[in-house]
Design a protein around this nucleic acid. Sequence first.
DNA 1: AAGCCGGGGAC
DNA 2: GTCCCAGGCTT
Length: 371
Amino acid sequence: MTEASSRQSSKPVKRAVIRPLLRWFDRAARDLPWRRTKDPYAIWVSEVMLQQTQVETVRPYYERFLRRFPTVQHLARARLDTVLKLWEGLGYYSRARNLHRAAGQIVARYDGHLPPTGEELVTLPGIGAYTAGAIASIAFGRREPVVDGNVTRLLCRVFRIRTDPKDSATQKEIWRLAQELLPTRRAGDFNQALMELGSEICLPRRPLCAECPLCRVCQARQHDEETVLPLRRARKAIPSYTIAIGVIYNRQGRILIDKRKPEGLLGGLWEFPGGKKEPSESLQKALRREVREELGIQIRVGRLLAVVDHAYSHFRVRLHAFICEHLSGTPRCITCSDVRWVSPASLRRYAFPAANTKIIQALREKDRRRH
DNA sequence: AAGCCGGGGAC
DNA sequence: GTCCCAGGCTT
């Protein structure tokens, strides 16, 4: 069974979403200027202004714009400069240019009336899938879905969608869910309720689940995942580093270890000296360079002891550990916070990162073979 | 699929 | 100050 087919919104699930959501909306809906009109033109203007822009920012612009251009014809006749001036400060000025262009097309092609279907609306400049669905459902009462950032977040949580909402397969699934959930009546209110709940309750970082009418059906909530969903980003190819490290012996058979700075990755842990290999250098050269830079000593790099792969949350490393010999210089901390010569047996008293303990393992096995 | 377009609010 | 937000269009 695929992920998608396991996430059908069955009849009972639909009811458990639609009824509390509409009931909540009836009680909690904000009184917004564009909710007081049924004029498709006014709703269109509001939806375009609301793209990427928050309600309180839009409010004064919307009022001024409709006073100045009360109908599609007024807007179509206006000069672009005038339209842009009214848009000044709202940002994303292509929205204003497209609005103006679309007004011309609506007059020319539709006798000044916005077409009622998403299919037609989406052909107009500046109207994409979201805005087309919003106008069709809110202004014309059609049963068409909307998916914006709020709906995406809400549905990812309610249906516990754990794939990246940006990738197209997930987008498709979210649109399908938004379509399936639509009630036969009040589709426009339902869509607005989804978006309102997303923007007021199902907040990005700290959702107010205690006040949410969908708390009981929310799958993310049931799994304590409401703050980790939706997935923030596609795991962009995590970087991979090649590291050369040295198990450096002195004449007395002791091994050199250094302590990492207290802050940052693996802070305060002990490790074998070494570091990242640059693309242009060999592992051996990288190791000699790193040890010189970190501790100010010269070494001779001997045979390869072990190769260890290790994955951190943000990157991967491949460690190449070499048996080395101390040649000259007294080790001193340049980029670490402590440094020590220790006997092989006492390595176990120091805290090492997991990747380093694998190297200690290899070291023990080598010594066992020698004895 | 990835980058661009602007401003605002949270922290 | 920095991080996060996000629809439509272009490449």
